[in-house]
Structures are given as C-alpha cells and as structure tokens.
Design a protein around this nucleic acid. Structure first.
Lengths: 225, 225
DNA sequence: GGAAAAAGTCAAAATATTGTCAAATTTCCG
DNA sequence: CGGAAATTTGACAATATTTTGACTTTTTCC
C-alpha cells in the first residue's frame, strides 16, 4: 500500500502542484488549505505531513503541536524564513525537518523518502506490550485495550504502566518511578505516585477484573509476571 | 577512587568549563574535542561519558555506537535539538540519557550522579543467590523461592537474609547486623535482630523444613555453608 | 546441679507505610 | 476566556511491619 502524504498549505496552487508530483512518485496524497481541514484529514492517518508554518492567520507551530498530539508520523515544515531560532522552535514543537522555500521537487522527494524510511524502521520495533488476560498496550499509539474494550489512561498513568510493564517482575521503588516519569530533578513526592497507581488499578480492575500491580511493602511496586 | 568522566565536545570552551566544574565536584575528568581523540580516551576506562552529538563533521550517533562497542558505562548526550525522534534514535544507538543545551550545571551533576549510582548498583550486584535444598533468593526482585513455593519476607527480614547469605559462613555479631540493616546511627536495641531472625527461621523452616541460620552463642549469627 | 548470661518465644503496642477520598490546583483545548 | 480533564495535595483510614517487654528456655561455667 502506498504511503499517504498530507500536504498543508494555504496556497492552492502549491498544494495542487505538490499533490500531482507526489502522486506521480507513487504516493497517495491528502490536501488541506487551512488548519481546521488539516486536523480533520488526520483521521485518514497520513504517513507523513508537509506543513507550511507561515499560513496567514494561523500559528503554524501551534498547529504543529496540535497535530503532534494526534499522530506520530514525521512532520516536515515548509517555510520561507529559516533562522536558527525558528529551527529550534520548530523541532521543539514536534516537527522533524525543515525545507526552505523555494525548494526543488527533487530535494523534497528525497527528504520525504528518507523520513518515511527512517520512520518505518523505528516503527517496526516492538511497540506493543501484552499482559495476562488479553491486556494489550500499544506504545506508539499510547492506547490500552482489554479484549475489545479500550481503557483510557492519562499521560502519567500511561508512562507508569509502560515502565512497569516493560520491566515486569522488576521492583521499582517509588523514587525511581518518580524519577522515571517526572524527571530526574523532581524532589520526590511519592504520594503522587501512590495516587496514580491507585487510578491505574481502578481502571484495570474495572476492565480486566484483575490485579496487575503488586505492592512491595516498604519498597515500591511491580507489575506481576 | 573518584569516578572518571569523559567529556566529548568540539567546543573547547565548553569542555574546559565542564571539566573544571566536575573536578570541583570531585570527579576525575578526561577531555576529547574530536571523535578520534574520544575513541583514544576510552582506553582510560571512563565511568561515564558526556557526548555532544552535534559536532561538525561527525555523526554523533555513529560515534556513540562506536563507543558503545568498547565500553558499557552510561553515555549522556548533550544536544541542542531534542525531538522525540532523536530521542528514540539516540537511545537505540546506545545512549542512556539526553541533556538539552543549554543546561544548568546543577542539573548536569544531578543526572551524572544518578547515572553513576544506578550503574554501580547494577554492576556489583549478582542478582541471584542460592542456598541448599533449592532455596533461591532473587535480589533485584526481592523474592525468595523454595522450589516452586514462594516465601514472602518483609523488608528487614529480606535485608537480613541478603546480608547473611551473601557472606554465608561468616559470623555477624548482632550489633553489626543491626548496623548493616538499620543504618549506622541506630542506637540501641539489637534484641530486635533476634526477633527478626526468629521470624525468618519460622518461614524458612516451614517452607524448606530445614535450618539455615546458625546461632553463634555469645556472638551472633551466620548462614550455614 | 545451679546460677547467670544469652538466646528464644509470644503477643500487645507502637510505628511506618500504603490506600482512599475529596478538594484544590494546574494544564489542556477549543 | 471557560470548561473539562489531569494532576497534585493533604487529611484520614486501613494495613503491614517493627519494636518492645515480660516471660521461658537453653547454654555456659563454676
């Protein structure tokens, strides 16, 4: 199946041109001329996004961040201005690469190909963890299923689950959990961990009717093997 | 002996600065301003490496992989850009953590200390001890098995077992046991030890039907060989 | 053998740690 | 901005562990 590329730019002329060229190169294309339409197109799960960050009336970086919240595919910025500062900003907001206008179609397709290749390589890596009783944790999509049913977890909850499950059977003391999920600097309030563990347990118990996380009294927690 | 930290960055100014600061913190430092020199410095067996992955003319990730082939110590990346993608790539290439420029010296030293601590813990810890009659003590999981059966021990109980078993045959007087498990400051009653030993014995006796801990009258205890 | 010292036993009391809940605060998104 | 969701916080309850002390048993040594 061909890769799907989403092109976001307010200039219709440009999106048409790119769309045509990329189709000739064997890609499927999606087009959006404004940010609302761009967000809608995400549901079609593009494999890569070309994003103009200088569209009038739209903060391109904000849009990028927004997009990043929904998909994990590479995002390439199309832009005229390109200071070092912009570059850093852009990458911080979840972009993967910059392409300065004007650019040659040859360069563009080369970069697209490179990013798709790289992304695929990374994606193949074990991105799913499984546990007893049909519990499935999709790491890239950050979604958890118990059989048919999806269990929704917040960010921190998911991070905790990922860590515990990835090294199931290992004990993590509360400090280390805090360190891993909140960052090394954090002065450890372990009561936060405790509360998050509780939330996780409730959701898992409700969906799977089973306890997955064990308390190691005086030490910390671990995911049962 | 102080830990040795290798700093790899093309900016002399930065390496000087870091080197100075880390020395003040009590570390030994090694410096390399290019990749060839970095590889040479590995022979001096650093305990931790700070690596700039954006040095001109050098593929930092490739260098990292190369380094990883020679040493097993923690590698921390110093980097300006820090996308999720980079992070994944970096960790794939054998890095252990990222530190984004600009960073505070305080943060840097905190992370260095954390990694050194963790690395040491992992290194000098045989993770499983075994004893007669199929008794198995898993130190990282803090679990004890007698054949199929698991025996549950509380924290202090486990700590005592670990100490006695690790140095089996050696006699520990009660003060020393107390000191080791409760901490150096602890004033007082080593009669607590006696009660804990009793609990341990009961559990072991019940599961293994056998005595493992011997009383050295007038002195203390030891794990039978 | 018998006294003294040391170690073992037991259960109750004290303490430490974790679980729960609700409210306060922050973050996220449109 | 405003509301919803997520996160944090603190008070309190529920538990598990640890400590204590009174008492018994064992060992040592004269």
């Amino acid at each position: 199946m061909p890769d799907r590329i989403l092109i976001v730019d307010d200039e219709k002329m440009l999106t048409e041109l790119l769309s045509g060229h990329l189709q000739e190169c064997g890609y499927d294309t999606l087009v959006a001329n404004d940010s609302r339409s761009a967000l809608r197109q995400l549901q079609k799960e593009p494999d890569l996004i070309l994003l103009d960050i200088n569209m009038p009336g739209v903060d391109g970086l904000e849009l990028c961040r927004n997009i990043r919240n929904h998909v994990s595919c590479p995002i390439l910025f199309l832009t005229a201005r390109i200071t070092e500062q912009d570059k850093i900003n852009g990458l911080q907001f979840g972009g993967d690469d910059y392409i300065t206008k004007p650019f040659s179609l040859k360069e563009l397709t080369a970069r697209i190909a490179a990013h798709l290749r790289r992304d695929k390589r990374n994606r193949n890596r074990a991105s799913v963890l499984t546990a007893a009783d049909g519990l499935i944790v999709n790491l890239t999509k950050r979604r958890v299923f118990c059989g048919e049913k999806e269990i929704r977890f917040s960010r921190k909850e998911f991070d905790l689950i990922e860590l515990l499950l990835r090294y199931r059977g290992q004990i993590f003391d509360k400090e280390r959990l805090y360190e891993a999920v909140w960052g090394l600097d954090a002065d450890g309030d372990s009561s936060v961990v405790k509360e998050h563990i509780r939330k996780i347990r409730i959701k898992l118990r409700e969906a799977a009717g089973r306890e997955y996380i064990e308390t190691i009294w005086g030490v910390g927690y671990r995911w049962k093997e």
